[in-house]
Write a protein that binds this DNA or RNA. Structure first.
Lengths: 208, 208
DNA sequence: GTCTATAGAAGGATAGAC
DNA sequence: GTCTATCCTTCTATAGAC
């Protein structure tokens, strides 16, 4: 036995949730893909589909964060790190025929007004992503408040671009989002040209 | 008779798709909310759920575009127009307890890898939104290519912020996205400080 | 054209043999 | 712990009365 049944179930759930969402994924489909008997779901996850969903969201969220952090930290500077992450996301999307984008975004939108435990799981993952990104911007010398805004703006762009890219079957939105995020970080690091960053909005308000 | 059965069905479908997505919305739920007999669905939409979905996506997309255009065009300038749109989206989200965000984003993610007719419908709506926004930026004096990038960046931010805002039950992401989009448009209009706009990326590459 | 009833498949969940 | 069989509900879709 190489991989435990419980882990195979979590793996196949993660993949199916990413592509087809929560309501679009059936438990029978999950065990079929995991090569597991149906009863194993309720053996390992007594809470049924919802518990399996919550655990998968946390697991997928953590794995995706680690993946992004590796790409990010391998870059020589934060601007390149941001660019590389978006480029990697675009490459993955193309390779998988526009199927594999954000591992939890579809679920997040589906469950937001339906299941409080599931919504909370997606919220915890997103908050962790924001803090991970913000801490890296902070380490690069950006003040905490602006670092958080930059992190949110970058992740906004990433998630929005995923929506558009999957629908349009084009990586154009991802490339635009990557360029914008990189430019925003660059501007935040360069005190000479802060006009287009959220933080310096007040200063630039005198402009047309 | 005030509103035709067919329109009531489309209205209730639009509302349910927006909140619960495509697979999360049942036909029985639709006719219940529309006060219509079940058979009416197949009378008016012989193609079943998929046809009803396609028509609703186009309809919701058009209505949302018109709503945004009204807010946008009522503002004294494009920067204010952008800000007002995000502020309005945030207000709607709060008033509806974080239920009413983008009318088609949840569906778009759900169907992207499942139904080609539905995916295409979402793609057509998104492309129309991009062109509507880009044309307004163009009218303000921004060159076509940059206007399209700005439009995509702004819509990326809006859709991504919808994902985060619904999950986190906070309007913070929407406010960040609005400020960033307004700043990007302002920078594109101001030749003095173009450093942080996507278009001027090459020029600024010499910076740290 | 409006509406009801029901078919047939798929959904989540459970019981219990092994 | 593994696996099968089955229950009950819900889903989409259709048939046909009125």
């Amino acid at each position: 036995m190489t991989v435990a049944t419980r882990d195979r179930i979590l793996d196949s759930t993660a993949e199916l949730l990413r592509r087809y969402g929560y309501t679009g994924t059936g438990l029978k489909q999950i065990v079929a893909e995991a090569n597991a008997p149906f009863g194993s779901i309720y053996h390992f996850f007594p809470g049924g589909k919802e518990q399996l969903g919550v655990e998968t969201i946390h697991r997928s969220g953590r794995m995706y964060q680690e993946l992004v952090e590796e790409v990010f930290d391998a870059a020589p500077d934060v601007v390149t790190g941001v660019s590389d992450c978006f480029a990697g996301a675009a490459a993955t999307l193309e390779v998988t025929d526009y199927a594999d984008a954000c591992p939890i975004a579809t679920v997040a939108l589906e469950v937001a007004s339906v299941s409080e435990p599931l919504r909370q799981a997606t919220a915890e993952v997103f908050e962790s992503w924001i803090q991970s990104s913000a801490s890296r911007f902070g380490r690069a010398g950006i003040a905490p408040a602006q670092a958080r805004e930059l992190a949110i703006a970058m992740l906004n762009g990433l998630e929005g671009a995923f929506v558009f890219s999957r629908a349009l079957r084009s990586t154009e939105p991802l490339h635009v989002a990557g360029a914008q995020a990189a430019a925003a970080v660059r501007a935040a690091l360069d005190p000479q040209a802060p006009a287009a960053t959220p933080r310096s909005r007040r200063r630039a308000r005198s402009a047309p």
